[in-house]
Nucleic acid binder design. Structure first.
Ligand code: FES
Ligand code: FES
Lengths: 148, 148
DNA sequence: TCAAAAAAAGATATGGGACTCCTTAATGGG
DNA sequence: CCCATTAAGGAGTCCCATATCTTTTTTTGA
């Protein structure tokens, strides 16, 4: 559904939300270990998220790292998708028409549109804080089991 | 959602269903013009669909081309996805875990699973014939408007 | 003020999807 | 039987997402 970059962005953001605060930041090494992502590549993605100035923040130097404000935790998943340039992924036509629209629908559209609406609603409603809480309260994961 | 190849495969199959029969086959040039896809690339995709021996058939030579049997028209969209190797696209985890499962769910899973189920159901229920009929009866398209 | 720590930035692979082109094989009509 | 027609097959190009490595900049704390 999403690119690797976006998947890492989502997982990293959730982890940062879980483990950091303005007083206690988390470093790149810890993050990429926790979400099982390539460290250098994750660095690039975190840079992108940070430059956006809305989602995460960072500070270099000793005891530096990444963190997220309580306010930013209320942003919906959609905000991350937007920064990652996948805002329109869900407006893509199933059959590959230029765009999925009521005006020029493909043969799948009349049935797909309801599912699409649910996806849009979900990514718009679910906040970073929600995802963080899910981890606290339920048996959910943001990392794969150790492979080999 | 799907790769370009798969999108072309779906559109091409629909067009072939619409315009061909065992007696009247349609050629590559006509197909790629009708669905607005690169001819040479489309040829590769049609080869793949043909080799599967389930979806479409073809005959070379004068008056040759591609066609689909009435029986094959009853195959679900899912069958095309399978041939194109995108069978598991819908079992991908939103956050990029190895697989989307109840056993090891990500924080999006509890809500996403219902949407996923609808997608799976749709691709399993909707047949090639259904899509063909949609074109006949409704205002739907399998090609973009001419661009410059 | 200096050194260590950590992120930022930049430069450089790599693999695969998307697409092209050329040659080969099969078919049917005359 | 030959030739035009059309699909099949194979080799190769291009670009971008993914990923790595190195160097620079910023910050902290001793
Ligand atoms: S137009 Fe194709 S899915 Fe909406
Ligand atoms: S496990 Fe992530 S979507 Fe199902």
């Amino acid at each position: 559904m999403f690119s690797k970059s976006t998947e890492y962005a989502l997982r990293a953001t959730i982890y940062i939300a879980q483990k950091s605060s303005e007083e206690h930041k988390v470093g790149l090494a810890e993050i990429s270990a926790a979400i099982d992502s390539p460290p250098s590549f994750t660095a690039k993605i975190l840079q992108a998220l940070r430059k956006d100035n809305k989602i995460i923040r960072s500070v270099p130097g000793p005891n530096g790292g990444f963190y997220i404000t309580e306010k930013a935790k209320n942003l919906p998943v959609h905000a991350i998708l937007k920064v990652m340039g996948e805002d329109d992924v869900l407006n893509k036509c199933v059959l590959g028409l230029d765009k999925c629209s009521e005006a020029k629908p493909c043969p799948m559209h009349s049935e797909y549109k309801f599912i699409k609406a649910q996806l849009l609603e979900l990514f718009d409603r679910k906040t970073i804080l929600d995802l963080e809480n899910d981890i606290k309260t339920g048996e959910v994961f943001i990392k794969n089991s150790r492979k080999k």
